[in-house]
């Protein structure tokens, strides 16, 4: 009898653990280097170490689970210093995303503080800006598709589409690393989003702006690629940690050990 109960409890723990794991599958992104649009002196490549990244952005259903376990982050209880007034404003109630939102749509209207906390509670963290950009430059076949015109055009055409945030996760393309939705669904928080300067505090950054805005008339693939990246950097640069917006979600990352 005792043996059986032990088996039973082990079994139930196993089930619970595997359900939990299913919530947030990750893939390995291998070490590499890339030249970011901003932030390096002399345009030197930045090395990105091997890391794990969630395959999908965090969904409404997953976030609802998190809130039930951590009610201090519910709409009613969240402290103003950690999220602004529009926090989860599209949800039906404190602990329910309701009928108007899909369970497997990405959760949005979440602040950086809460996104960070969510990942910490999973034993993870937010990806760094470099990790995110590095993983996001892959298309289906290549680790770096940025110079491919059709790829950049795809990204830019998404920037023009509205309300993609209401779509389910996993319906855009699966990239080289096995990750979905880096483009085409929602914008995503990064751990160091506040490392961007577009206000001219760093002369090096300003030069890039000048190149973008005052460049020659011809637009080539590199310009388009820079333009797409510029949009992301400009967006991040405009954010504050407690801001929440309808088209901004997140996914988690983890060091590879």
């Amino acid at each position: 009898m005792l043996k059986r109960t032990i088996y039973m409890s082990l079994f139930s723990m196993f089930i619970a653990a595997s359900l939990w794991a299913q919530n947030s599958k990750m893939v390995l992104v291998k070490k590499g280097a890339y030249v970011p649009l901003y932030g390096t002196v002399d345009k030197k490549p930045v090395t990105v170490n091997e890391f794990q990244l969630d395959i999908y952005p965090v969904t409404n259903a997953q976030f609802q689970d998190f809130l039930k376990k951590n009610p201090e982050y519910s709409k009613a209880k969240i402290k103003g210093i950690f999220a602004d007034k529009s926090y989860l404003s599209h949800w039906e109630s404190d602990f329910s995303y309701g009928k108007n939102n899909l369970s497997n749509a990405p959760v949005t209207n979440v602040s950086w503080f809460v996104a960070k906390k969510y990942c910490e509670c999973q034993g993870k963290r937010l990806p760094t800006l470099d990790e995110w950009e590095y993983a996001a430059m892959a298309d289906e076949k290549r680790t770096d598709a940025r110079t491919k015109e059709s790829y950049t055009k795809y990204i830019l055409s998404w920037y023009e589409k509205s309300k993609t945030y209401a779509n389910p996760v996993g319906q855009t393309f699966k990239n080289y690393w096995g990750v979905y939705d880096m483009h085409g669904l929602v914008w995503e928080w990064t751990s160091d989003f506040n490392s961007i300067f577009l206000s001219g505090e760093s002369r090096k950054d300003k030069d890039t702006d000048k190149n973008l805005f005052c460049g020659s008339g011809s637009v080539n693939a590199t310009d388009l690629m820079n333009y797409a990246a510029f949009m992301r950097y400009a967006f991040r640069g405009s954010l504050k940690a407690k801001y929440t917006t309808r088209n901004l979600g997140f996914r988690c990352a983890k060091d590879f050990k």
Partner: peptide
């Protein structure tokens, strides 16, 4: 009995799922 153990195991899982959730209430 089985049910109690099962319940306990699940409860344990819930409490373990986020050990840092105490911080904010500090």
């Amino acid at each position: 009995m089985k049910k109690i153990i099962l319940g306990l195991a699940l409860l344990l899982m819930i409490f373990q799922s986020c050990d840092s959730n105490k911080k904010a209430s500090d």
